[in-house]
Design a protein around this nucleic acid. Sequence first.
DNA 1: TATTAAACGAGACGGTACGTCCAGTCTTAGC
DNA 2: GCTAAGACTGGACGTACCGTCTCGTTTAATA
Lengths: 214, 214, 214, 214
Amino acid sequence: MGRDIAAAGEFDVGQTAPRHHGNRHGRSEHARQAVLEAADDLLVEKGFAGVTMEGIAASAGVAKQTIYRWWNSKTDVLMDAFLQDAAEQLTPADYGDVARDLRTHLRQLAHFLSKSDPGAVFRALIGQAQHDPVFAAAFRTRYLDDQRRRDRLPLERAAQRGQLPADLDVAAEVDQLVGPIYYRVLVTGEPVDQDFTDQLVNGFLRRLPTTLPA
Amino acid sequence: MGRDIAAAGEFDVGQTAPRHHGNRHGRSEHARQAVLEAADDLLVEKGFAGVTMEGIAASAGVAKQTIYRWWNSKTDVLMDAFLQDAAEQLTPADYGDVARDLRTHLRQLAHFLSKSDPGAVFRALIGQAQHDPVFAAAFRTRYLDDQRRRDRLPLERAAQRGQLPADLDVAAEVDQLVGPIYYRVLVTGEPVDQDFTDQLVNGFLRRLPTTLPA
Amino acid sequence: MGRDIAAAGEFDVGQTAPRHHGNRHGRSEHARQAVLEAADDLLVEKGFAGVTMEGIAASAGVAKQTIYRWWNSKTDVLMDAFLQDAAEQLTPADYGDVARDLRTHLRQLAHFLSKSDPGAVFRALIGQAQHDPVFAAAFRTRYLDDQRRRDRLPLERAAQRGQLPADLDVAAEVDQLVGPIYYRVLVTGEPVDQDFTDQLVNGFLRRLPTTLPA
Amino acid sequence: MGRDIAAAGEFDVGQTAPRHHGNRHGRSEHARQAVLEAADDLLVEKGFAGVTMEGIAASAGVAKQTIYRWWNSKTDVLMDAFLQDAAEQLTPADYGDVARDLRTHLRQLAHFLSKSDPGAVFRALIGQAQHDPVFAAAFRTRYLDDQRRRDRLPLERAAQRGQLPADLDVAAEVDQLVGPIYYRVLVTGEPVDQDFTDQLVNGFLRRLPTTLPA
DNA sequence: TATTAAACGAGACGGTACGTCCAGTCTTAGC
DNA sequence: GCTAAGACTGGACGTACCGTCTCGTTTAATA
């Protein structure tokens, strides 16, 4: 579906990409992948300043113009790279238990943001968003809004199960759960371990009204 | 005395700085101020991409080399500019009441981050910190550590007054209070109004153990 | 002709050059000519110190990088400019008479060195050669060696005609003929008129052995 | 003699100069010497481009302003340095024999120009003269005119002795004698050995009218 | 003996040009 | 019709020196 690369597979099943130099079939999937991977690699290896359009083109073995044909800027490339291999790692599981769901999700979020390669890309994109309002809007539209929806799932599911007060401000509660994690990652740079994320869940549970239906 | 520029004041009272072109007083205060203000202005007017060393030099009426003599990069300049006119705006007041102290401080923090000019500089610097680990470390050393200390003050004072549990993890609690604000400012871009910050304080109070000395 | 850009005119009759902005034809002839002319003009108008890479770029309407792509330094540009429009002005004519050939050639050489615009460029290049041994070697390889060969032509032709002693040291004789001209131009700065050059030829003839075939 | 500082010796016989930091006597001889030597050394070691006012100041242990107080430019310094230790090496000896005088003088001139350290400075200055007419004029006034006068001495002395035709154009003859040497040094870069200079003298003698008083 | 003024070191300053890097555009040839 | 290739304009980068300008100190002549 959608971003599936295998669509190219119609004429290329099970082989390496044909590496054509232009044709009438439309966009070269080979070039697209090479660009995204090159951008990703450059970021992880050399940091944000080491990612340049020329560098991506060179290490992807692709012409600069080919990049500009499909993307507007290096952050646009990075965003695509990020969306492709990172987006779905953060869908919270559903164990039917809000406490467990939250604990698992926050642990995963913390790990993703502070330890994984896609997390490094994410931090770079968030950084860029502070410098460029247009990019910030695009990034929110293409990723953050979805992610916030996913972050809300555990609470919404619990609410549907009647395990939470009907009038709970889910959005605000979620901000209180994930906000401190982002804060540590983006601002203080402290490690975010399980104790910390578990404590966030505990705090959430403690500030709920005590009288609830089992 | 010594290299104090104000020494000129003895015979120059109430006038503009003497605008020397280098001498062994050492650094020109005039140039320093002009650079910091120019950087600040450019950031607010044209955004981060509009801040260049050449632009700062030109609009400060200063030679590029003079900037490089004292700063390493445009973010270094911006950090100085930020520290100079923003650092102390975020010292929490002390009303002797932890709830009131927190409410006031968080409102102020939210306003500073999302509405003020220094807040724009701050966001730019945090953005840069995502791209540049060396800068991140410097920024934390020169500003964020202090700010975290200030953020802890309301809770520490309350703890000293015996109004909080002795075993309260102050650092973690502060992260839960300010984290959501930074999250909204840096990540979601949502406005942060008083309802939101007050709710954070309420949540904090609610998750305290109920039995406390008055 | 010479530096006429209109060579492109075969397919572009009566119009300005196509002025492309880079393509895979390779090098832009328009840019090349503009740079050489700008360098030439700047040297004549403002002297050697007035020739800068930035100045050339600006007055040629060309990006600095385009210059650096094809030349290494301003003297490299000047050498190309010189070679292009000056190299062949100094080929001695052949009247079949060594005295007349020499007289004509030395007059032309003197005029070229001390009065013409290319001569001004030449003097600047010789000046640079005193400061930069690498450039000196390049200049000798690319121009001076050829010129010395041309300077020898009148004597060599006369020798072939049997009008000169078989054992004449042609190279040394040529140095005695042209050396004083260069000396006046480069060292004393005195004008070099026809009397002077004719006297050189007379001296040459007089120091030949008197018994020669007619 | 030469660059002997011993003028200061009145109160400092046989010791190093007193190294004062300014006084109302006037100029510091120590600083003057240090500058000239530093300029000389830099030229020989690093070439003309390696001579900068800042470099001279640094390696002379002198403030830049001290140099600018007494000289106008690096070529001005170099000219002084040259004049001081090189000027008088080129006074032709007087053996009473024009052939011998010339032979000796031209050999010495050739060696000076192409082999000695002062010769390297001289070439740099001549190079600069090609780039800067004002400097060229100064150099001619302060050195070259004198040198030409010295170069004429052998012929003038011979003329006074009645050994040369009364109507000999001494200036032109001298140009024909020294010109080829300068030409080789400045233009072709060829070595100038004794054969070459002796041949110049022979040529001169041969083109004299044969009937002369003994 | 105390004052004074020229020359000194130090070094910051406003500038100009350097040579490099990358962004983003454009044109062509190959498949 | 998309690609690789690559030359182009434009502009910021960070560096090196330029020549100018104090400043605080040293020093010998003068008062």
